[in-house]
Design a binder for these strands. Structure first.
Length: 489
DNA sequence: CCCATTTGACCATT
DNA sequence: AATGGTCAAATGGG
């Protein structure tokens, strides 16, 4: 009998294993949640959550890089798609032996662009430890392309890679393309990694957020620490710290500011009762805080024509549009703002992520959300009437986000033969309506029932104003105000 | 000696 | 056949 090929495929086996593991952990979690907290065993729900997330994340990464390797499998089961071995010391020898001494260099599949993201900057430094493994002259390029992999490729099975190429001199600009997420326990979680975490969502088929914050419970007040898992984690971070001595970016942040111990920490948390302070994880998990449904992707797909989508993707909010998952990204921004409330520091914000202190400046906030920020005051709005709201909703005041969403879902694009038919009078109108939603629900984090503010609609309506308007300042301030309000309740 | 970079070879993909 | 991604021997720095 012919054995099904799939069982011979290590890639597929890994995917299956990860998914099965994930399911097992989920079942364990379900059992755990059905028991009273006092009966919980040595494994916490948070730990199980992390395990589940890791399993699915691994499976997705595997599926994303699958491609042709599945076919190669038939010919050569020994290697091809999977160069990695848990046993890094004997890996090289093993590989050669398996291949009968034949050199398999360059035996790879060509990169896919999905699951990658780019960055242009004046420095190559991004806080991560990279190892260069190649350099290539690229056709029609003045400068060579350099290939890097994560230093922890073998010791921690980390698959992150990047390609760096100079695209301009004086001033120098590096173009970096990142592939894959870090699976390693890197001490240096930087703003850039945060950006990556918030923007990368590799598989378009699966909506999944990376957990941007530490999962394990950790009380900020050392007196309150009795949980064994907390101690374990502390040991773990010390271990990492000692093995990773060179840490240029880290030295820049000696501020041992414990966010939760800041002077302006609220006495109670709106999520739970008791007189302890809460980490951002607590806020992050507080569903009442994250209003509305910010997932505009499906609306964009059904309401805008491909041409309109293309335009929107290259417009003022292009960096927002690049994000696969607005909700996750904006949660991060929310948390950043929240940290500012805790530290009461106008110049920088800091919080904990993966057990490490991370510090952000307002400038970094700008980098993260890529929204315009200016140093001077901005409230200089004209008192025009919103023509677009008036035109499509019959009124310029009192239109809710829901009204716009409903309008969009009731007027999906139609295609007859070759042309897209659209309910709006122009492409511009369709895009502007979508931009209003982006501003109100994503930048301002408003809930569905809120009314659209006319003064911002008029800015969106005017392309020049919209491009020049410092959305970064406004969303930043709005979020902080909104969080302060939430804290007071 | 260890670790990182350099560089030509190798080969999948286009 | 050209191109680009990866490997690994050679090389170099600490």
């Amino acid at each position: 009998m012919k054995k099904p090929l799939v069982h011979e495929n290590p890639r597929k086996n890994r995917v299956i294993k990860e998914l099965v593991d994930g399911k097992r952990f989920a079942t364990q979690l379900q059992t755990l949640l059905q028991q009273p907290i006092a009966d919980h065993g040595p494994v916490s729900a948070d730990e199980l959550l992390l395990k589940i997330w890791r399993s699915f994340s691994e499976a997705i990464t595997e599926l994303n890089t699958w491609g042709l390797a599945f076919q190669i499998e038939e010919v050569d089961q020994a290697d091809s798609g999977d160069r990695k071995s848990k046993d890094s010391t004997s890996e090289l020898k093993k590989k050669k032996d398996k291949q009968g001494g034949k050199d398999r260099r360059g035996c790879y599949k060509r990169r896919k662009t999905s699951g990658s993201w780019m960055r242009e900057s004046a420095t190559v430094e991004d806080g991560c430890a990279w190892r260069k493994y190649g350099q290539k002259n690229i056709l029609n390029s003045k400068y060579p392309r350099c290939y890097f992999r994560c230093t922890h490729k073998y010791d921690q099975d980390c698959r992150a890679t990047k390609q760096v190429q100079i695209i301009q001199e004086n001033p120098i600009i590096y173009h970096t393309t990142y592939f894959g997420q870090h699976a390693c326990n890197s001490l240096k979680i930087t703003k850039h990694e945060m950006m990556i975490i918030s923007q990368s969502n590799h598989n378009p088929m699966v909506e999944m957020e990376s957990p941007p914050f530490e999962i394990k419970p950790k009380l900020p007040n050392s007196d309150a620490i009795h949980d064994s898992t907390v101690k374990e984690e502390d040991q773990e971070s010390n271990k990492i710290a000692s093995t990773k001595s060179k840490s240029p970016t880290n030295s820049k942040a000696p501020k041992q500011r414990r966010i939760s111990k800041g002077p302006s920490v609220p006495v109670t948390s709106p999520t739970k009762s008791g007189d302890r302070y809460y980490e951002f994880r607590d806020w992050f998990n507080c569903r009442t805080y994250w209003k509305g449904n910010h997932n505009l992707k499906s609306l964009i797909a059904t309401f805008l024509t491909p041409a309109q989508q293309e335009k929107l993707n290259n417009d003022t909010f292009r960096y927002i549009m690049v994000m696969e998952n607005f909700k996750c990204s904006m949660k991060l921004v929310h948390c950043l703002c929240l940290s500012r409330i805790f530290t009461n520091d106008r110049d920088s914000i800091s919080f904990k992520t993966f057990g490490h202190d991370v510090s952000f400046t307002l400038e970094d906030f700008h980098v993260m959300c890529s929204l315009r920020i200016t140093s001077h005051n901005v409230e200089n709005l004209s008192k025009r009437e919103s023509t677009i709201l008036k035109h499509y909703f019959g009124k310029s005041k009192g239109v809710t986000l829901k009204d716009i969403r409903d309008f969009m879902s009731q007027n999906e694009i139609q295609k007859d033969d070759v042309n897209f038919k659209h309910v709006c009078e122009s492409d511009e109108d369709a895009m502007k309506l979508m931009k209003i939603l982006v501003v109100e629900s994503i930048l301002f984090g408003k809930k569905n029932e809120s009314t659209v503010l006319e003064k911002y609609t008029t800015i969106v309506e005017d392309n020049k104003s919209c491009a020049e308007y410092p959305w970064g300042n406004v969303s930043y301030e709005k979020l902080i105000t909104s969080m302060k309000h939430a804290l007071d309740n």
